[in-house]
Design a protein around this nucleic acid. Structure first.
Length: 616
RNA sequence: GCGGGUGUAGCUCAAUGGUAGAGCGCUAGUCUUCCAAACUAGUUACGAGGGUUCGAUUCCCUUCACCCGCUCCA
């Protein structure tokens, strides 16, 4: 995944970022703080541009999305309802031998999948099913040989003589270590079976796992000056929950109708186990999230008379009244990829990963990861999840306040439906509920009863025009996108001068829309006051419309090179022809293009109309 | 949190148990008519703390950050 070459490339990017003022380590003069990064002058511009472009495309260019800016610290109960309080504190164990980190709750499952583990199971079943147990040191030695390769750190392998002697001894006396399969397996994985907690072998090497330790991924604080259990609060680990919590307010005050979305850009905080890969996994980071609320499929079917599916490619077009959640989901995936294309990333830079049903989080119906080919691997940039009504239902449950919407049209439409249609909508819903209950481990019979109960209540509400909206959530990491843009833009150009000396220059080929500085303005020479004055005039002409960098120091080539490294797409040079040395070229300038060094002569009056469409 | 590696000007790299050096960059000036020109001057460092020592950038310990691996998924 990440070889030395890609590491080298990342190191170059990191050092360029610092040298040119894109990204610095946070708190650097105090020695830095792991997992936190600051954006310098160029980085701040780049980030603003990215967030602005996202906001414009999501909110301003659409009739059906509005914005929200919520606080970072919110009522702690929100995190209980969302599940973050529970799922963000997984106990972890470390293997004493191979030092790998294992989630304690997954250890058993992982161990059971291991080949060597199955050998042990077979041995147990063959040997120990009846008492008294006839087991010899030789038999255990054979067993040890069969697992030695795959589980080199298993106690039975590490300390074969001691462990097998103990097991033989136990078999002939109390038989405690052979009392059941689990007990036996634990016994072969440790030298000291009696030292306190229940052992489990490491799934990777058979070694001994440490006691589970809690890992809490949420930043904790207190509101109010006195720290106590009663005023614990958390920095949000995602911005999305605020949107769900304010959903009713926004719905009632924005004059939006279903379906519609709420967008938010803001900081989020996660106490990552290991921040890694430059800014990719930071502990403080920024997200751009949209929660797009849609009618449940049953409501769409009742209103539109039919339900569009994803198969026909409808999602590529303009939203339609008959779209179910699947179409909306694909629609948003496509919208997001188009957004990335608009800011300089190419479709080929991405991998769309559709999560398999067994990988989905409990709240998600479908999730697509948009992965970017970073130098250090193919990694997630954005996740687009179809979350059903999970979140709004959770908050309804925990807050005791309704998150339902009332849909006048739905009520009217429902009264006009014939009985058969009503029944088929209900039947379809009922079977989905039943299936999901079974998947969650309910017995067929119980699931059927519950599903009938649920669907009856649900359809009754629907008939009156009430439902809890479902949601599609495109959630992108700003800092990750910045990093992707930097990696994509990074180019090295090797040039050889007439003396045969070659040198490597760096060019950041940002799309003009995201480039921190849009245009460099240069007088060809700085010791000619007329050139300087004219250059100032050009700078002032452009400045109200775009970021401009004026530079008069050093040779012109040097100034071009410096702007290339900052990713400035255009350079404007004022020379003697601008001043009228050749009358026909009066008031024209050189417009230089970063990516190919191409130069053209452009009238000053044409600069704005030329440049503006390229940077907007 | 565990293991391995790294830490000297902004960058690349030297040297040394006794005052730290170069190239590039950067800043200013002279000059310069389109891709890191030249000249002059200036600029800046031993990651932090402690110990051994008459004296530590160098030896020892601790710590911090970064990189690689385990975990994570915006």
């Amino acid at each position: 995944m990440s070889d030395s070459k890609s590491t080298e490339l990342m190191e170059k990017i990191v050092s360029l970022c610092k040298r040119r003022g894109f990204i610095y380590p946070s708190s650097e003069i105090y020695g830095g703080i792991n997992g936190f990064w600051d954006y310098g002058p160029l980085g701040a511009e780049l980030k603003r541009n990215v967030k602005d472009l996202w906001w414009r495309s999501m909110v301003h260019y659409r009739d059906d999305v509005v914005g929200l800016e919520a606080t970072i610290i919110m009522h702690p109960m929100i995190w209980k309802a969302s599940g973050h309080l529970d799922t963000f504190s997984d106990p972890m164990s470390t293997c004493r031998q191979c030092k790998k980190l294992v989630r304690s709750d997954q250890a058993l499952e992982m161990v059971e999948d291991a080949e060597w583990f199955q050998r042990l199971q077979q041995f147990y079943t063959a040997t120990a099913q009846s008492l008294p147990i006839a087991v010899t040191v030789e038999a255990l030695e054979k067993l040890e040989q069969s697992v030695r390769k795959k589980a080199p750190n298993l106690a039975l392998v590490r300390a074969r003589e001691a462990v097998s002697a103990r097991l033989v001894e136990s078999a002939s006396s109390d038989g405690a270590e052979w009392s059941n399969e689990t007990q036996f397996l634990r016994s072969v994985s440790t030298e000291n079976p009696g030292n306190g907690y229940a052992h489990f072998p490491c799934p990777h090497c058979g070694g001994e796992l440490t006691e589970p330790r809690p890992f809490n991924l949420m930043f904790k604080s207190h509101y109010g000056p006195v720290e106590s259990e009663d005023n614990v609060c958390y920095l949000r680990p995602e911005t999305a929950q605020a949107i769900f919590v304010q959903f009713k307010n926004v719905f009632e005050t924005s004059r939006q109708k279903m379906p519609f979305g709420i967008a938010q850009v803001g900081k989020a905080f996660r106490n990552e186990v290991t921040p890694r890969n430059f800014t990719f996994r930071s502990r403080e980071f920024e997200q751009m999230e949209l929660e797009f609320f849609i009618k449940p499929d049953e409501a769409v079917a009742a209103l539109a008379g039919k339900l569009a599916t994803a198969a026909d490619g409808a999602w590529q077009g303009v939203p339609q009244a008959d779209w179910g959640w699947e179409v909306w989901h694909k629609y948003w995936v496509e919208q997001r990829v188009r957004f990335y294309e608009n800011i300089g990333l190419a479709r080929e830079d991405f991998v769309e990963y559709w999560q398999k049903p067994d990988e989905l989080a409990h709240y998600a119906r479908a999730t697509v990861d948009i992965l970017f080919r970073f130098p250090f691997g193919v990694q997630e940039l954005e996740g687009i999840a179809a979350r059903g009504d999970f979140d709004l239902t959770q908050h309804q449950k925990f807050s005791g306040k309704s998150t339902e919407v009332f849909d006048e049209e739905l009520r009217a439409a429902w009264t006009k439906l014939d009985d058969a249609t009503r029944q088929s909508i209900k039947a379809r819903y009922e079977s989905t509920v039943r299936e999901s209950l079974v998947k969650r481990g309910f017995l067929e019979s119980d699931a059927a009863i519950q599903a009938t109960e649920f669907s009856t209540a649900y359809i009754e509400k629907l008939a009156k025009g009430y439902y809890v909206p479902h949601v599609i959530e495109p959630s992108a990491g700003v800092d990750r996108l910045i990093l992707a843009l930097l990696c994509k833009a990074y180019h090295e150009v090797v040039s050889t001068d007439e003396k045969g000396k070659s040198e490597t220059r760096v060019v950041l080929k940002f799309h003009p829309r995201v480039a921190p500085i849009k245009v460099g303005v240069f007088p060809l020479l700085k010791n000619k006051p007329e050139l300087v004055a004219k250059a100032h005039a050009v700078r002032d002409l452009l400045r109200p419309h775009m970021t401009v960098f004026y530079d008069e120091s050093g040779a012109i080539g040097r100034r071009y090179a410096r702007q290339d490294e900052a990713g400035t797409p255009f350079g404007v040079t004022i020379d003697f022809e601008t001043l009228g040395e050749k009358p026909e070229l009066l008031d024209t300038v050189t417009l230089r293009h970063r990516d190919d060094g191409r130069q053209e002569r452009v009238a000053i009056a044409d600069l704005l109309p030329r440049l503006l469409p390229l940077i907007r």
